[in-house]
Design a protein around this nucleic acid. Structure first.
Lengths: 190, 190
DNA sequence: ACACAAACGCACTGATCACTGCAATTAAAG
DNA sequence: CTTTAATTGCAGTGATCAGTGCGTTTGTGT
């Protein structure tokens, strides 16, 4: 899945090779096209042309726009947010919710999420949120290991992830810092 | 926008006319095609053929798949759930959340929501949730008129609508009755 | 019944899309 | 350096899509 990092071969699949460069160009093209003309249907020939690559290459590597968007979403939404470690669960969650809100506010993010959901269905949707779920679980388990009373992953998902994604995807209301703090407060009333 | 209901003319635009019949057939075709082959891109010629209508008609009446899906979602998600009146806010919300959960669990609903979001962006997304927001607000205002301490629409949206839609759209977890009741309990701890 | 307007069916057209062999280039191994 | 495999570029194909002009049908008003 990911490129091996400890292979100092002078040639080949190091992260500047041709294959990797094309992949990056296509990913960038998808993001730019979605940001520009968010509503219009994304097709492979258009993406390929905008990336300076032949459509054949895109067809062979990704197959369909759904798989392409899933791939773009997976790499776009992995590693972009780090799990904070402030010492307290409240601090961690406030920081994490704030980071996630900023991420979702990025003008490029929302069109990508919407297009991925539309073209790749459940697979695409999980590509947008899979890592969030894991990160949230990591923070909760760490707090539980400290011997605290910790809300379940299910409850935390309902109280934090769900409102953030819902407001971003389904409404046009802004994801303000005050509001994200309120979400954490409702989850942790103590 | 909608057909006038108080015009008892013997002919014309009563709800069985040709125009209305075609509209219904196209709407039904969209639903069936999305339910069958949820992932594949929906095109106007395919919808028209499946509805037994010529593609030209669909192009002229709706213009694009985005507008068509927005129209389908709007009529599909309006009037399908009635605001309950059990006498207490908790009863109303539990009933309403349960109805909404059942609605979102319908095999035809989810593909429609996802496709509409993908093809019509923010406009499509709001077509799926606009009425929910109003209905929730109606229940809250009615309770407030009784002189009770009522949560804000914002809080209720975060605690009910958001988890329901998030779980349906982004995860594969089921929307069980127990879980929906838990959502209401977390919103109304008294 | 008649005239008028609106909506639909039909037969097209240009453009784009998804896809397929084949040659050329590039990367990896001996 | 040579060999071998994988990836990409290229040109071309059938199929589908989006859109247009025109005749016909359907609905509305006089």
């Amino acid at each position: 899945m990911s490129t091996p990092a400890s292979l100092p071969s002078r040639t080949g699949s190091r992260p500047g090779g041709r294959s990797a460069r094309i992949r990056a160009a296509v990913h960038r093209a998808v993001g730019e096209l979605l940001a520009e003309q968010g509503g219009e249907p994304l097709t492979i020939p258009v993406v390929a042309a905008h990336a300076g690559v032949h459509a054949t290459t895109v067809y062979r590597r990704w197959g369909s726009v759904g798989e392409l968007l899933t791939d773009v979403a997976t790499s776009r939404f992995s590693g972009d947010i780090v799990v904070p470690d402030t010492g307290s669960l409240r601090g961690d969650l406030e920081r994490y919710a704030s980071d996630l809100a900023r991420d979702l506010t990025d003008p490029d993010t929302l069109p990508l999420v919407r297009a991925t959901i539309g073209a790749a269905g459940e697979q695409g949707a999980s590509a947008c949120t899979a890592e969030r779920q894991q990160q949230l679980q990591a923070m909760l388990e760490r707090d539980q290991a400290r011997g605290h009373h910790t809300p379940t992953v299910e409850h935390a998902t309902d109280a934090l992830l769900a409102p953030l994604y819902y407001r971003a995807v389904f409404t046009d209301q802004p994801l303000t810092p005050d509001w994200t703090r309120t979400l954490v407060t409702h989850l942790l009333p103590d």
